[in-house]
Amino acid sequence: MKRRSTGRRRLLNSAVTATAMGAALLGIGALTWILYTVISRGAAAINWAFFTELPTPPGVGGGGLSSALWGTVYITGVAAALGIPLGLLAGVYLAELGRHSRLGDAVRFGSNVLMGVPSIIVGLFVYTIIVLPTGHFSGWAGGVSLAIIMLPVVARTSEDMLRMVPDSLRESALALGAPRWRATFGVIFRAARAGLITGVVLAVARVSGETAPLLFTALNSPYTVSSLNEPTANLTVTIFNYAMSPYQDWQTLAWGASLIITVAVLVLTLLSRLAFKENRTWS
């Protein structure tokens, strides 16, 4: 090895340390800037009317996004109602019944692939299987596309969480004569509860901010949501439409919607962390 003077090595080390700190500051600074912008511009748009009124035409002023707020809640609800049970069942298969099976391996691999498929492609796919055959955009289609995005996420996280439950617990449940399904839902699920909740909440948080899969499925609508069988108002596509519009008051509403979505996603993420930390029963 080449001999180098201690001074030069120290200098190089200090230079790298300074660069690393600078980079950390730069990265964190940029991201703080984003959060600051969302909070300051968003807060200016939030008032009572924002939550209770329908959007107004540009130039009229006032108005709110009540329809989009509820639409996002409904669509995310449909996604959760489909994606969570299917994801949990798939997770059970991967962790309990098909742990070493060929199907299990293929599904594990497939889940990784599906998680990597861009969400706009999922939207395109749901457009071809639901919107085209039914002939119209709908909140249901939006919910299905979000459910497809949730499925592999819930499956993989619940598999990981179920696997953390020690085998002795499985064996004791089965030794008592419990059938497999009873041992799984009554004993193993209870032991892994905190972890399962964390995974599910994280998946909901992730899809609630999705925009691309809703563009061709739920579309958007200026009206109150009366049925999910028609184009359905939602926050994220509203942000896209309003932000791209030339109207100042629409852009303000878009910032308000951005703040709501950001806060919702961050709160859900934080909550899931807390659930995981506080009652980790198996450790």
Binding site: A106, G110, F125, R180, W181, R182
Partner: peptide
């Protein structure tokens, strides 16, 4: 009960593969 359990979970898991295949076919 366990046979149903096995089938239901296996089908849910296989759904992942089915979706990937269907995306390709539909596109």
């Amino acid at each position: 009960g366990d046979r149903i359990f096995r089938w239901v979970t296996a089908i849910s898991a296989a759904l992942v593969l089915l979706i990937i295949g269907a995306i390709f076919v539909e596109l």
